[in-house]
């Protein structure tokens, strides 16, 4: 059984946010009004967190693309009272909308703030409904949503591989953000396959994981030269 993981090379990332918009287009993520945005209700499964440090002229800006970490030990699933969010056997943390009751316990539990609540049903102008991705459902009011690692692409990739009577190959299943990254800073694959690109990169001396000391065992691995917050740990 594969263990899907993402590697993001912060040394290559330009902070262009192509991944953010690729995700919004792929996953039918609605935009919210400026007033709602001011209340912090913008939904962005993939978000770039900018960190501005230092004083002029020694200022450093770092960009951290942040999808769902798809933790191996996810804090969000433990608090869900209805099993709407859970970790499946391939290590993906699923979010099943029809089960979700909108209690937002998971939203509070996630240390990476990847969970977003739908305060109202998405509002698209009629014209824009035409360009919704038919592979992804639109979410109703009152449920929590988050990055799925584009698992609808996995559903289709698996089927295609089976129809061609072969195993899933590296590159068959890649989330929209990874596919789009202009700088080639993102990688995706099976962490349990020692020959996969992600497994090799995860062994790099540059590899670390966000908030590693919480014990969440995230499956998004970052690469960066130089110092970083907290200890480096191999994934």
């Amino acid at each position: 059984m594969p263990r899907w993981a993402m590697v993001i090379d912060l040394d290559k990332c330009t902070g262009c946010q192509a991944c953010v918009i690729a995700c919004k287009a792929e996953n039918n993520i609605p935009f919210v009004s400026p007033e709602q945005a001011a209340m912090g209700r913008t939904i962005s499964w993939m978000e770039i967190i900018p960190i501005v440090e230092g004083e002029y002229p020694r200022v450093r800006v770092r960009y951290i693309p942040r999808p769902c970490m798809q933790c191996d030990n996810p804090p969000c699933t433990k608090v869900c009272p209805v099993y709407a969010t859970f970790k499946n056997e391939e290590g993906l943390v699923a979010q099943i909308y029809p089960r979700c009751i909108g209690c937002r316990y998971c939203t509070a539990a996630c240390p990476y703030t990847v969970k977003y609540f739908n305060w109202y049903a998405p509002q698209w102008p009629a014209e824009m409904r035409a360009c919704l991705n038919p592979d992804v459902s639109t979410r109703p009011k009152g449920v929590v949503e988050k990055c799925t690692f584009c698992h609808h692409r996995l559903q289709k990739a698996k089927e295609k591989a089976r129809a061609e009577q072969r195993e899933l190959r590296e590159g068959d299943y890649v989330p929209a953000c990874v596919q789009s990254c202009p700088a080639g800073a993102m990688f995706f694959g099976d962490l349990d396959d020692p020959m996969s690109t992600v497994a090799q990169l995860a062994r790099s001396a540059r590899a670390f994981r966000l908030l590693d000391d919480l014990g969440t065992e995230p499956k998004v691995i970052y690469l960066s030269e130089g110092e970083w917050y907290g200890p480096r740990k191999r994934a």
Partner: peptide
């Protein structure tokens, strides 16, 4: 590959 503006061609 594609930039954010490229993706937003839909809009």
């Amino acid at each position: 590959r594609l930039c954010p503006l490229g993706h937003a061609g839909l809009q």
